[in-house]
Write a protein that binds this DNA or RNA. Structure first.
Length: 414
RNA sequence: GGACAGCUGGCCGAGUGGUCGAAGGCGCACGCCUGGAACGCGUGUAAAGGGCAACCUUUCUAGGGUUCGAAUCCCUAGCUGUCCGCCA
């Protein structure tokens, strides 16, 4: 949630900033008005409540002294009717504000480039030269089937389209990658955490997936539980509603989970292969930091993911997302795109975001500094999407006969 | 799934209708004491919102109810514990 005080104090700047992220200016006005309405309703209610408290105190006193309470009773009853009306008004104002505010995205950082969509993202740098081939490289689904690493039909049989079964060396490689990534991250100071893959509504609201993106989530019937779309949700919400001490920050975590996404609205994109699946594995990085630490930790996380790709020998590039491509909760995002020779293009394999205090405000993640409670900053980044890493390994290290050379760093994990 | 018990501040814990945001303890902070420390002594120590401030409002798991007035009484839900059942 954005800072509503900032909106009131500096409406023009905040509104301009939100418009960069394609927020309707009508919604911004609505938000401002709802905030003011609530503030007013609260003030009036509180004055009336104070009066009621005072009358009740007098009532008790009169009773004790044996005086008549008839006259007070008339006053107190009349005030109570008013009080109830004001309380209702306040509640409506609260609900209105909440429903608007929870759907307003985070403000982009000032240095995030303007832009409409991914076309306007800005490349920071390329890492590692592109693999060279003396033959026409194949796409990963062809290689996966040829090597019998992935069975796409069996996934459909067991569940439905966009599910697959990984077998043999493919399955072993998957497991090796997960272990390699977790170890790599741990060496960089990210503590390994194993979390639930089902979470409640509160957690998803905390990180911003709800209320706006309910259609993208798998929900458990008859329970208020959802399959997580990313480990960011459980990892970040680990500290939901907590007041941390300044000294224990930054908290840096790494966790492996399966992720589940409905991919509603992805249309016919990437139906083939394992680029876009309903269920996929991912190792995630999450950090909770003080406000003054988040920029540095952000760079650490980007470096961690990039170095991981380099260790695997995968050519990739770093891209700063423009305002139009920035996610709901992100103030700033750097995507890592891996080179896929079969597809002859770079594809996203990791996305590192600083949400600043946006998630912390929703999830109530705070830290104490000099006696004051301040909102923490939260960051998240993939490190990496396992399926897409498999795809990259297949396409980059394929041989003319279709066999695949597995990166040396993974040997000890196999 | 069934029965019973519980849920109070950072933690433990007292508190069954009014002056209780809440005794006491632990922890923490500061001061005194000390060569330095421990011990001891003293003081302070929940959060959110509004206001320049005095101060006001809210919060004793959550929601609803009774009442002039609820941490306290009633109902519902959640969670925790114990026992029973079932089961990887």
């Amino acid at each position: 949630m954005i800072d509503l005080k900032l909106l009131q104090k500096d409406f023009d700047a905040t509104a301009t900033s939100l418009k960069r992220k394609k927020v309707d200016s009508e919604l911004i006005d609505l938000l401002k008005n709802a905030d003011e309405t609530l503030k007013h309703a609260k003030t009036v209610y509180e004055h009336t409540q104070a009066k009621q408290n005072e009358l009740s105190r007098l009532f008790g006193q009169a009773k004790k002294e044996g005086k008549s309470t008839d006259e007070l009773k008339v006053q107190v009853d009349a005030n109570k009717i008013l009080l109830n009306e004001l309380l209702d008004a306040q509640r409506i104002a609260e609900e209105t504000l909440e429903s608007i505010a929870m759907r307003v995205p985070n403000l982009p950082d000032a240095d995030v480039p303007d832009g409409a969509d991914e076309e306007d993202n800005i490349e920071i740098k390329k890492v590692l030269p592109l693999s060279e081939f003396t033959f026409t490289p194949k796409e990963h689904w062809e290689l996966a089937e040829q090597n019998e690493w992935i069975d796409f039909e069996k996934g459909v049989k067991l569940a439905k389209s966009r599910f697959s079964v990984v077998l043999g060396m493919g399955a072993r490689l998957e497991r090796a990658l997960i272990n390699f990534m977790l170890d790599f991250n741990r060496e960089r100071g990210f503590m390994e955490v194993s979390v639930p893959m089902l979470v409640n509504r509160r957690a998803l609201e905390g990180t911003g997936q709800l209320p706006k993106f309910e259609d993208d989530l798998f929900k458990i019937e008859g329970e208020e539980l959802f399959l997580i779309p990313t480990a960011e949700v459980p990892l970040t919400n680990l500290y939901q509603d907590e007041i941390l001490s300044s000294a224990e920050l930054p908290i840096k975590m790494s966790g492996y989970t399966s992720c589940f996404r409905k991919e509603a609205g992805s249309g016919g994109r990437d139906v083939r292969g394992m680029i876009r699946q309903h269920q996929f594995h991912k190792v995630e990085l999450v950090a909770i930091t003080r406000a003054d630490q988040s920029d540095a930790v952000f760079e650490e996380m980007v470096a961690c993911a990039s170095d991981l790709l380099s260790a695997l020998g995968l050519p990739h590039r770093l891209v700063t997302l423009c305002t139009g491509d920035l996610g709901f909760g992100a103030a700033k995002t750097v995507d890592l795109e891996v080179w896929l020779p079969g597809q002859n293009t770079y594809r996203e394999i990791s996305s590192v975001s600083n949400t600043r205090d946006f998630q912390a405000r929703r999830a109530k993640i705070r830290y104490k500094e000099e006696g004051k409670n301040l909102l923490a900053h939260t960051l998240n980044g993939s490190s990496l999407a396992v399926g897409r890493t498999m795809v990259a390994i297949m396409e980059n290290f394929q041989q003319e006969d279709g066999s695949i050379i597995i990166p040396a760093v993974l040997q000890k994990y196999l």
